[in-house]
Design a binder for these strands. Structure first.
Lengths: 102, 102
DNA sequence: GACAGTGCTACAGAAATTGTAGTAACGGAG
DNA sequence: CTCCGTTACTACAATTTCTGTAGCACTGTC
């Protein structure tokens, strides 16, 4: 089986990004790191996923330079990761409005 | 089909939203509908997913009142869906910057 | 040495997704 | 009416992904 690039085969950055963020737990992990660094197990407990997939997603996020492992404090967002998070922060407020609408 | 709540068991709106958006193809579908309505097959061809999953995601998005089926024109974002999209639009520009950084 | 914490991995079973094929309803052409 | 193309959508087996549990190797503390 040929290794495929998930999501877009075009390689356009927006498609690559949407594909990365559209994997289970990815958005959630970024969200959990929004305020402070987290240890591997801490993160795993917080989101309730298996260590296998947490590790896989962390590896992808690290490769994408959105997350890094700080030996002292744990996993944390990089500068790029924080930029991305800032784009997502309005979601929090909006989600409350959305919840009322549905 | 049994209705399950994926992701967060808390029911907090932001978690429910992150869970919905963190399913494969969901973000991509919203993105494809950003400019104009799309027919089912058109959408399927554009993203390259199976009809099964396209239909499943559309059903979820319709239930979440983010997408609706306009018999005349095809699937389109609702007012809520357009609000959500507006939050995501900066991603397009940011993704270009991100692509250069990695 | 015993113990707890760290990141991380193995692996079998369960769940989600794919790929292919097909259904049913509708409209227009012949 | 029959045939054809279009629509949304479904069935189902094969494949891929994720889960749940257990454990490893390493570091530091007592």
């Amino acid at each position: 089986m040929v290794k495929r690039v998930r999501g877009s085969r075009t390689g356009r950055p927006i498609m690559v990004l949407l594909d990365l963020l559209g994997r289970r737990w990815t958005l959630r992990i970024v969200w959990e790191l929004r305020e402070e660094p987290r240890r591997f197990r801490e993160l795993q407990d917080a989101i309730g996923a298996s260590p296998t997939i947490v590790n896989t997603r962390l590896a992808e996020l690290r490769e994408a330079k959105l997350v890094r492992l700080d030996e002292e404090a744990g996993y944390r967002l990089t500068a790029l990761g924080e930029e991305l998070l800032r784009l997502f922060l309005p979601l929090h407020v909006w989600s409350e409005k959305w919840a009322k609408a549905i």
